[in-house]
C-alpha cells in the first residue's frame, strides 16, 4: 500500500467495521420495523378471519337473551350456565323436563372416534408398510383404488351400507359405527403412513437384515420408531375427520350411539327456537381438543390435510 501510513490503514479498517456494524444495526432495525408492521397487519387480518370462531366462543358464555341481543353485545357478564346445561341430564322447558344427555354423546364421539382410529391405525400401518416395502403387482392401481374410496362422495357408499346394516342389525350399534369409521379412516391412514415409510432411508433396515434380524425385528424395532411422529400425525388427522363426521352418523347411529355433531344438529330444531348459547358451548368444548393437538402438530398439518400426498 504505497503512500498510506499504517495509522491511516487502521482508521480505514475501523471505519469500515463501524460502517458495517451501523449498517447491520440499521438493517436489523428495518427488518424489525417491517416485521412489526407485518405482525400488526397479520394480527388484524387474522383476528377478522378468526372472528366467527371467536363469536361462537363468546356466545357460549352468554345468556339466551344476550345471544339474541340487537345490537350485538360485546361486553357482557359471562355465565357458565350453558356449559352446565351441556352436561346436566335434564333442563326444564316450562313444566316438562328435556333430556340433553350430552355427556353420553361426548362419550360416544370419543369412544367411536378413538376406537376406530386405533383400529385403522393398526391395520393401516401394517398395510402401508406392505405397500411401501413389498410392492405387489399393480401396486399403483391398489393405491389409486384406495384413495378413490376416500375421495368419493360418502352418499354413494352409504346407500348399500344402510341396507347392509339393516339386514345384519348393525345399525345403531357401536360396533357397526366403529367398523364403518375404521373403513372410512383406512384409506387416509394407508396413504399417510406409506408416505412416511417411503421417506425412511433403506440402509439401516438393510444393514439390520444383513446382521440377521428377523422381519418382525426390522418392522417393530427399526421402522416403527422412526415413523413415530407420522403415527401421531395420522392419528390426530384421523381423529379430526372422524370427530366432525356428520352424514354416516346421522344415518347409522341410534339414539344411544349418537355422536356430538348429529346431536348438535338436532338441538337446532325445536319450538323454543335454537338455544344458541348451548350450541356454542357444545361446539367450544368440541373444538378445544382438536385445536390443542393440531397446535402441537403444526408442521405436519399440510401433509395431514392432503392425505400425505403433499409433503412439503
Amino acid at each position: 500500500m504505497p503512500g498510506s501510513s499504517p495509522g491511516h490503514e487502521d482508521r480505514k479498517n475501523t471505519d469500515r467495521a463501524e460502517g458495517r456494524l451501523a449498517m447491520r444495526f440499521r438493517r436489523k432495525r428495518e427488518i424489525g420495523r417491517a416485521g412489526l408492521r407485518r405482525s400488526l397487519v397479520a394480527t388484524i387480518i387474522s383476528l377478522i378471519y378468526f372472528f366467527p370462531v371467536l363469536w361462537i366462543i363468546l356466545t357460549a358464555f352468554k345468556t339466551h337473551n344476550d345471544a339474541l341481543a340487537v345490537p350485538p353485545i360485546f361486553l357482557f357478564e359471562p355465565t357458565l350456565e350453558n356449559f352446565v346445561s351441556v352436561f346436566s341430564r335434564a333442563y326444564s322447558k316450562g313444566a316438562e323436563a328435556i333430556d340433553t344427555g350430552f355427556a353420553l354423546f361426548f362419550f360416544n364421539s370419543i369412544f367411536t372416534a378413538g376406537t376406530s382410529v386405533l383400529l385403522a391405525l393398526i391395520i393401516g400401518t401394517v398395510a402401508a408398510y406392505g405397500f411401501s416395502r413389498y410392492p405387489l403387482k399393480g401396486n399403483e392401481t391398489y393405491m389409486f383404488i384406495i384413495l378413490t374410496t376416500r375421495m368419493l362422495p360418502p352418499i354413494i357408499v352409504i346407500i348399500p351400507i344402510f341396507l347392509m346394516f339393516r339386514v345384519t342389525g348393525f345399525s345403531g350399534t357401536y360396533h357397526g359405527l366403529i367398523l364403518l369409521y375404521a373403513a372410512f379412516n383406512l384409506p387416509f391412514t394407508i396413504w399417510m403412513m406409506k408416505s412416511f415409510f417411503d421417506e425412511l432411508p433403506r440402509e439401516v433396515e438393510d444393514a439390520a437384515r444383513m446382521d440377521g434380524s428377523s422381519e418382525w425385528h426390522v418392522f417393530f424395532r427399526i421402522c416403527l420408531p422412526q415413523v413415530k411422529a407420522g403415527i401421531a400425525a395420522t392419528a390426530v388427522f384421523g381423529l379430526i375427520l372422524t370427530w366432525n363426521e356428520f352424514l354416516f352418523s346421522l344415518l347409522l347411529s341410534g339414539v344411544n350411539t349418537r355422536t356430538v355433531p348429529v346431536a348438535m344438529a338436532q338441538t337446532i330444531g325445536g319450538d323454543i327456537g335454537v338455544r344458541w348459547g348451548l350450541l356454542a358451548a357444545i361446539e367450544t368444548l368440541f373444538l378445544i381438543p382438536v385445536v390443542l393437538v393440531t397446535f402441537l402438530l403444526q408442521n405436519q398439518f399440510l401433509r395431514g390435510v392432503t392425505f400425505g400426498t403433499i409433503k412439503r
Partner: peptide, 22 residues
C-alpha cells in the same frame, strides 16, 4: 417470518377444524 406468526397462523387455520355442523 414475523413475531407471533405461529399463533396467528393457528387462528387462521381454526375454521378448518370446526365441525361442518357448527
Amino acid at each position: 417470518q414475523f413475531p407471533g406468526r405461529r399463533v396467528l397462523l393457528m387462528l387462521v387455520l381454526t375454521p378448518m377444524m370446526l365441525s361442518f355442523v357448527a
